[in-house]
Amino acid sequence: MSVLLSATSVGFQRGGKTILQDADIQVSSQEIVTLIGPNGAGKTTLVRLLLGLMKPDSGAIQRSKDLVVGYMPQKLNIDNTMPLSVQRFLALTGQKSGEINNALARVGVGTLKKQSMVDLSGGETQRVLLARALLRKPNLLVLDEPVQGVDVAGQAQLYDLIAELRDELSAGVLMISHDLHLVMAKTDTVVCLNKHVCCHGHPEAVTAHPAYLELFGQNQSASVAVYTHHHDHTHDHHGDVHTDTHSHCTDATHSH
């Protein structure tokens, strides 16, 4: 596993306010790294620094020479007045129609080709964005809150899809996530950020870490643990079973 992208003691200030301080992160090929943290923790800033969209005030960003990033932004802001079909949106990458069809089919939205971009639902938009990232044949996928606006069943499917794509492309994956439950199961490394990196490591280790517990509280961590256990289940069963068990477990947590 080679290191694709890393930041070393990166600091960033805006308007006299420290947004990031001494943050380290590293993404290797075939590794799924999830960046979690409360609002205003600097998650998006760190990703933008890693992508080279902004320059850090201190520290260094290293990118491997053959790095090809497939980036999936949080959301698009396409104005209603722009007549842009899904196909045309993907054609902006310069790829041929055959490739576009393949990418759309791979992420499970092959039928949306002729739809207008502004009419897509949250989940459909995320999948189309993922298709666009795939068209670049990336060795690193960078996903900013990939399941935003997607219902719970859809979220699990989307995380499964991301893990599958990681295997197919042998790519590294860096994602930002708000939710702690579903994302943990598919993650190799969790980086918990609150201006600096509070803790990082394997999901199970991180959820037991004092710094993590301080940020997200006992309750959250219990339901994450429950979910990890529960995840072993879902390989045999499917969606509805999983939501039922899940709510049941959360109730159990509350009664503590």
Binding site: R48, L53, Y71, P73, L76, I78, M82, L92, T93, G94
Partner: peptide, 17 residues
Amino acid sequence: WRQLITLTVHEDLAQVE
């Protein structure tokens, strides 16, 4: 043209690409 359209859709995405 194509760059202008890409930029209009999403500036960060355009820059990463």
